[in-house]
Design a protein around this nucleic acid. Structure first.
Lengths: 201, 201
DNA sequence: CGGCGTTTTGAGAGAGCTCAACATCGGTGG
DNA sequence: CCACCGATGTTGAGCTCTCTCAAAACGCCG
C-alpha cells in the first residue's frame, strides 16, 4: 500500500498519524528534523522560498508516497511542507528509523533498493517528459507500463490522475486515447487499457 | 567530480574503465549483473524493448552520472545500456561494492544519503517540467539553483546542455535568457548568470 | 432524483518547435 | 600566423500542437 510498509513492526508501531487542514504547515525550512513522512490521504507540497521570497514548488507528494527522505540525513528540513488539501500523513521518527536501518544490513539493503528503484522510476518519468507530442508520451507510458505478456495496463486511479502524471491536460489525454483507440492501437475498458500487438506505431 | 568518488579506495581500486564506440552495447536486458557504472565521458542510453520490439528510452546518463544503481539489488539488468557517442565508463564490481556498503554502517548511511538526495533533485526537476512556459521554467531553475546570498548561478556546462536539462530547445532558452536580461531580471557573463534582486517576477 | 466529478468533444489562440541563416569562439594544421 | 572547421551562441519567421475556455454527456453516490 505504501513505500515504507516493509519496515519492521517495531518502527511501524512508533509511527504516528497527523491530520492537516488545507493550507496547514507540516514543517518549515530550518526546523529540526524529527521525522520523515508518508502521505496516507491528501496531498503535501514541498516549497522553498527563494531570493526575493519567491515560492518554488519542489515536489508534490500524493497518497501513498513518502517524502522528505533526504531529511533522514540532515539536521534541518530544507523546505516547507504544506498540505494543499485536507491531508493525513504518517510520521516515522527519524532517530529510531535511522538506527533500525543502519543496525540491520538486511534492512539497509532493502531501503537502498527502495530508493534506487524510486530513482529509476523518476528518471524514466523525466525522460518521458522529453517527448513533445501527447501521442508519443502516452504511447511511451503505455509501452513501459504494459504487462509484457498480455499488453494490459491496469488503471489504478482516474484518467485525470494519469494525465497529471505524464504531464498532459486531461483533454489532451482523452483525445489521444480516443485517437489510438480508433486506430486500433489500443483497446479500452473501464479499468484497463490493452495494447494491441502487430502495429507499427 | 562524480557521484561515487566518496567510496573507499579499496573499491575505487577495484573499479575498471571501459571504452565504448558509438552504438556499442555495455550490457543487455537479462544479463547477469556484474557491476554498476558511472559515465566518465560520453553518454549512455538505457533502453527497454517493449511489446512488438518498440524501443523506449528509460534514461540518458551524461558525463559524471552514475546509472544502473538499482542493478545492485537485482540479479539481472532490466534494460539495455548503449553508448550513443564515444564513451568511457567506470565499472564498480557489484559483489564487492555491495559487501563494502553493507559492511560499514557509515558507508551505508552515506550511500542512502546520496540516493535520497538524487531523488530529491529528480523530483524537483520533474516538478519543474510541469511549468509550461519557457520563462517560468528558466526562472524556476535559476531561483532554485541560485546561491542564496549572491544570487549567482555558475554555468557548469554549455547553455545547450542546460536547455536539455530543463526540457527546452536551445533556441527557446537563448531567447528567454535574452528577454530576462533586457528586463534587468538577470545579468549574464560567459560563465555565470546573476539573479538581480528587487524584481517582482 | 439530484449533484458532483469524470469523461468527452469543439474551437480558438498562444507558445515553443522546426528550419534557416549567421555570428562567435576555440582549436588545428598548413 | 592565418585559414579552416566544428560546436556554441543568437536571431528570424512560420507552423503545429497543446493549452485554455466552453459545453455537454455520463456515471456514481447519497
Amino acid at each position: 500500500m505504501s513505500t515504507l510498509d516493509w519496515l519492521p513492526s517495531s518502527i511501524l508501531q512508533l509511527s504516528t498519524q497527523r491530520d492537516l487542514k488545507s493550507g496547514e504547515v507540516l514543517f518549515r525550512q530550518g526546523d529540526a528534523v524529527s521525522a520523515i513522512f508518508e502521505v496516507e490521504e491528501g496531498r503535501i507540497r514541498l516549497l522553498r522560498y527563494t531570493i526575493d521570497d519567491h515560492v518554488a514548488v519542489l515536489h508534490t507528494a500524493a497518497s501513498g508516497e513518502s517524502f522528505a527522505e533526504a531529511a533522514l540525513f540532515s539536521d534541518t528540513y530544507h523546505c516547507d511542507a504544506v498540505a494543499s488539501v485536507v491531508t493525513r500523513v504518517r510520521a516515522y521518527p527519524k532517530r529510531e528509523l535511522l538506527e533500525t536501518l543502519l543496525g540491520d544490513p538486511k534492512l539497509a539493503k532493502k531501503y537502498m533498493s527502495v530508493l534506487a528503484h524510486e530513482m529509476q522510476t523518476l528518471r524514466t518519468r523525466l525522460e518521458q517528459r522529453n517527448l513533445r507530442t501527447a501521442r508519443d508520451r502516452v504511447l511511451q507510458h503505455l509501452l513501459v507500463s504494459a504487462d509484457a505478456g498480455s499488453g494490459i495496463i491496469p488503471l489504478s486511479g482516474t484518467l485525470m490522475d494519469l494525465a497529471g502524471e505524464i504531464g498532459l491536460t486531461h483533454e489532451a489525454l482523452y483525445r489521444t486515447l480516443a485517437a489510438l483507440e480508433s486506430e486500433r492501437i489500443i483497446a479500452r475498458t473501464k479499468d484497463k487499457i490493452v495494447l494491441l500487438r502487430g502495429k507499427s506505431l
